[in-house]
Structure formats: structure tokens, C-alpha cells
Design a protein around this nucleic acid. Sequence first.
DNA 1: CTTTTTATAGTCGTGATGACTATAAAAAGG
DNA 2: CCTTTTTATAGTCATCACGACTATAAAAAG
Lengths: 244, 244
Amino acid sequence: MRGHDRHAYDKYAYEPFAVTVDLAVLTLRAGALHVLLVERGQEPYAGRWALPGGFVLPDESAETAARRELAEETGLKDVSGLHLEQLRTYSEPGRDPRMRVVSVAFAALLPHAPEPTGGGDALQARWQPYEDVGPLAFDHDRILADAHDRIGADLERTCLATAFCPPEFTLGELQQVYETVWGTGLDRPNFRRKVLATPGFVEPVPGGARLTGGRGKPAALYRAGPATALHPPLLRPPREGRSA
Amino acid sequence: MRGHDRHAYDKYAYEPFAVTVDLAVLTLRAGALHVLLVERGQEPYAGRWALPGGFVLPDESAETAARRELAEETGLKDVSGLHLEQLRTYSEPGRDPRMRVVSVAFAALLPHAPEPTGGGDALQARWQPYEDVGPLAFDHDRILADAHDRIGADLERTCLATAFCPPEFTLGELQQVYETVWGTGLDRPNFRRKVLATPGFVEPVPGGARLTGGRGKPAALYRAGPATALHPPLLRPPREGRSA
DNA sequence: CTTTTTATAGTCGTGATGACTATAAAAAGG
DNA sequence: CCTTTTTATAGTCATCACGACTATAAAAAG
């Protein structure tokens, strides 16, 4: 042991850290995965795009701060039902050139994407296709990649996919969530069989089928069911590269 | 937006936070899961057991701090090869009664458990069976439960189990890892078939079988293979309760 | 030398899954 | 109005993974 108690926090005995949250806000627009980005107005990285985020206030937990930022950035009235997941914390000493900043990263999933409010001191805010995201400020490329990995893995084992869907959705829409996030195609009859065989994943809407929208046969509508986990998991097709 | 730039960190414009790491150090002793605990010597929670941990120093990342604490608490010379996994960050405003502390929690896995060095300002340090862990200081019960959940889930999809084993081990020892962490029994032939069918999970040691140790037929020795993920996963037997 | 204990090999049936075909019900386009 | 296109849904079939189980081998214990 060294000369300090492991849990005796002498205030300012050590250099204090700023604590922030960063949000990877994901949604589906026109069948493609999109990310909410803001353009920075100040140095460092002025003019570069970054993930939205901000300080954790003195009376907030990181989760509370993340939900507040999410509401501010998206302009949504009610974000209480949205899926918000803590990813991990980024604490490399050099990640912000000005001072020591520890950032707790979150992934948020939206069913439908309203245009971001933008404004404030950020120059602008917008949805950007995931594939087109260029180099971001700070270590936000890494955070975004980690978010994508996590969501993709969660789709296999949880009912998370419905968080990307509106309250009522077709199985085709649900399948598009999987295909878009994983970047693979799935066999439609097999996907259907698997989803319906998982108790509590989805449940049919009492009377309806959607007519006016699509071109083909109208699809039945479903709602998210009470289940949260998928047993057994819905595994994505194995990559061609060896698993080792 | 409110009256501050999301990423303009005016030093001390906001109340700074202390940042610590907490470690859930797990090992197997005599076929039971054990946790490394320290007894607190000071208020608050004086006399209560807690997870080891400590401050993140100004030039450290949380991972670096966690590895340093792990070396200090276990007395191990080389912790560079040990599995250390960031769990999540705990930031509830009231979790430390004295001041605002944000703690990044890690899970660490040890193959063999040396007696902890103890000493310092903690009254003592020791390995405690996971089942016997009483109420811990702060929110450490929650952290420990989260660590257990995470490790159990990781065993299904990764080659993590070998991190609990010495460099050379038998399939029986590997199976004990699964059974101990999951708290279930597994069929030995089936476990063997599954492990050996996963390419890169384990590979046989060139010439050997272990003789002197056990009572029955000597078992072949294996090493950890190059694989990190299990495809398909090694699922734990489903709980009797409904999956919904 | 028998019993006990553990490791390892193999069998069998069931269920999940991938690949595929077929049919139904709508819009689109002549 | 009829054909084509498009999407949803139903069903088939073979393979494979897995749980449950039996059998054999090789050591220690008595």
C-alpha cells in the first residue's frame, strides 16, 4: 500500500477530473443506420463533427445527464421510454488536450428520427449515415465503433431490436433492423419463424394489417412483447473469416 | 441548449469529481468462487468489507489504475497477462456520503489465488467465498453482482474460462470453472465434445497427461488456444423460470 | 483383486436452423 | 382487365447441435 487510504477522499488531494457523457444516438432512416452528430464551434477540433455530449452536473448521475442531453439534442419531448445503455468509460489521459476529462459513453436507440434541433454553441446538428462518418473529434470514432459493436451483439441476445421500431411494426421492419445493424441479409421465412417462436418477443396487434403503405401483400402489425431476452439467441450468420 | 458549450471545459466551472476504480477480483479456490475483499479502517463504513480500489492518478487511465491496484492488492509480480474487464461506471450522487465520487468498476480473473498481502490502511484483505459475502460498503454489493452476471454471460460467448485456469489444465478443471460460476452441473461428455469441437478454444499439450494428482484415470492437459470467441456459444442450461 | 473414481468414446433422438419452394394478396403498368 | 412485380406468409427437407445416456479405459483405494 502507499501513503493514502484507498477510500479516504481528501478533497483536491488529487487532481480532480471533469466528468462528461458522450452519446452515440442511433436510428434508422431510409433503411440505413444513422448517427446524430454535432459540429464543434470551438477549439480544439473546431469545425469537426463529434458525438453529442456534455457535463455531468453536480446533482446528476451519468445516466441522468445522458438522458437530459438526449432530450436536448434530439428535441424530443419524452425520452423516458427510450433505450439508453451505458457502453463504457473512456479515461485515457490525453483524450482531451485541454484538461483531464473522463467520459461515460452511452448508446441510445431511436425508432424514428426527428430532425435535430441544433443551435446552441454547436454550429449544427444532423443525422449522418453511419458509413459516411469521417474522422470525429477526440476519441469519438472509437466510441461510435464500440457502440455499433455493442448494439450488434445485443440484437443477438435481447429484444433490443424493437427499440428501433415504432410502437407498431411489421416483421419486415424488424428484420430490416437486424439487416441494417449487422450489414447482412437474412432469410425472411426463417427470420419470421424464429421471431414468432420466441415467446414474448412480439405480439400481434389485435385487428390490423397495414394496407396503404407497401407495394406487396399487406403485412400484419406487431407490438413489442414483455420478453427482454432471447432464448435461444438469434445468431447472426457467421463471418466468412475464421473464428480464431 | 443552455449557457455552456458542450465541450468547453472551463476548469472548475463545475464541481469536479473524484474518480476511482473498484475491482471485483474473482478466483476459484477449492471449487468455489471467491472474491477479494478488504476491511475498511475508516469512516464511513469502518469495519465493513469492501471491494479493493483506489484513486485514478492524474497520469493514469482507469485501466492503468485498475491494473496497478490489482498488483498492489494481490501481491502478484506480473499482472500484465491477467484478464481485466471494464464493467461499467457508477455515478449516483449519493453513493459516497462525503463527496462526489465516480467509480469505474472492473472485473479481474485469477487462475490461482495467492493469499492477499493486506496491510496498509485497510485492516485486512482476504479471499471470501462468493456465497458468504455479506453487505459490503458503498454500492459494492451491486458492483459485485454486476461482475458476476457479466462473467457468467462472457463464459457463454468467449474463451474467458481459461483465464481462471493455470497455463495447463484439464477439461475437468475447465468444466469446473463453468459449473462454479454458473452454479449448475454440466454433463461431462457433452461439455468435452463441445469444447473440442470449437476450433482454437483449447489445444492439447504436446506430450502429457497428468498422473499423480487425481484419483481416477489421468486426464489430458490442454492450453488456451488462439480463439477469443465461441461460435456457436456454449449456452448455460436454461433456468426453470419462464424466459419472459 | 475388487471397488471406486475419473476420463474418454460413442449412440440416439429431438429440436433448431439454413436453404429452398409454394401460395396469397396487394400495387403497378400496360 | 389482365399481367407483372412485389411483398407477406406457409410449408418442406436435410443437416447439425445438443441433451440424455451407455460403455469402456485407466488410474487410486481398500
